[in-house]
């Protein structure tokens, strides 16, 4: 019994501490691959997108890959789970997140995918079967993802009894062994993305410019926009109050109330008796102007 209570309390503590953490910067989905860290080569990026399409067609599993530089203080699994929610992924989705600057990664699975593949099996792909973690630690991102998807392909073909094949690029990059990494990376098409080029000096980045991931640039722009929204609001004519429409409705209500008063009804009756039929005279009687004019005459 005590164990149960302790378990529930620990769970509540974990949930509370997670909820207390403020929002981390999370990228917008750009489809199958969201490489905000810009670490993958164009060839591998295209191959991952192609492979995800094949997997979706063959076994109904939707692959998503998100690469950022950092997890903003969250642990990899929390970041993966939050991004899975933010992107509104469902039962048949699998999300692989990786923080290039932290050498850290995790997967989040939809319920159907978890049932079919098993969380443990998918996590094993990251650490053992594919040497993904080792390649990430060495910043060999193309190789890491190619090897991961090669191992993933074996797993889904086994589990779903399917025959999905890897695109040529992924298969060829993934087939490089440790000794051939240098050879692979020396090929022009094998150079990673912008970040890889900058860190290897290929891009010839100027000393006075600092590379910024698009996610951070967008965030700063969002901060500026938030301030601009307020400035715009203050510059507009402040429409404090109930507005013109509100006042018109209020005046109509008051006129209706006054039209039900004793003197106005009396005036209306006498107006009708006198044979008055002009619209303005009728309206004047309705709102009691005749009563007011009588009062002034007195």
């Amino acid at each position: 019994m005590k164990k149960w209570i302790c378990g529930i309390l620990s769970l509540m503590l974990v949930l509370c501490s997670t909820a207390a953490l403020a929002a981390a910067r999370m990228p917008q989905s750009r489809g199958v691959l969201t490489d905000d860290a810009d670490v993958l080569s164009a060839a591998v990026s295209a191959a991952i997108t192609e492979y995800a399409g094949d997997v979706e067609n063959e076994v109904d599993v939707n692959l998503h890959v998100a690469i950022v530089h950092f997890f903003d203080g969250l642990d990899a699994q929390t970041f993966a789970n939050r991004l899975f929610e933010k992107w509104e992924l469902g039962k048949e989705d699998l999300l692989l997140v990786c923080a290039a600057g932290e050498d850290s990664f995790a997967t989040a699975l939809g319920s159907e995918v978890e049932k079919e593949l098993g969380k443990q099996n998918v996590d094993n792909l990251l650490y053992t079967s594919s040497e993904f973690s080792a390649h990430i630690a060495r910043q060999e991102y193309d190789l890491a993802f190619a090897k991961y998807f090669a191992a993933f392909n074996e797993l889904i073909n086994k589990r779903f009894d399917s025959s999905v094949t890897l695109p040529k690029t992924l298969a060829s990059v993934g087939s490089y062994n440790g000794g051939a990494v240098q050879e692979y990376q020396s090929q022009p098409s094998g150079l990673g993305g912008l970040w890889n080029q900058i860190t290897s000096g290929v891009a010839g980045e100027r000393e006075d410019t600092v590379y910024m991931p698009s996610l951070w640039t967008q965030t700063v722009q969002g901060v500026v926009d938030n301030s601009a929204d307020y400035t715009h609001y203050t510059e507009q004519d402040s429409s404090n109050g109930i507005g013109v429409g509100g006042w018109i409705i209020l005046i109509i209500l008051i006129l209706i109330i006054f039209s039900q008063s004793h003197p106005v009804r009396k005036a209306k009756r006498s107006y009708r008796k006198s044979g008055g039929s002009k619209p303005l005279g009728w309206i004047g009687a309705l709102i009691g102007l005749s009563v007011l004019s009588k009062l002034f005459r007195k």
Binding site: R25, F70, G73
Partner: peptide, 11 residues
Amino acid sequence: VLSFRGADGHN
């Protein structure tokens, strides 16, 4: 903004 600055600190 404070949270993002904190996140940069963590990073």
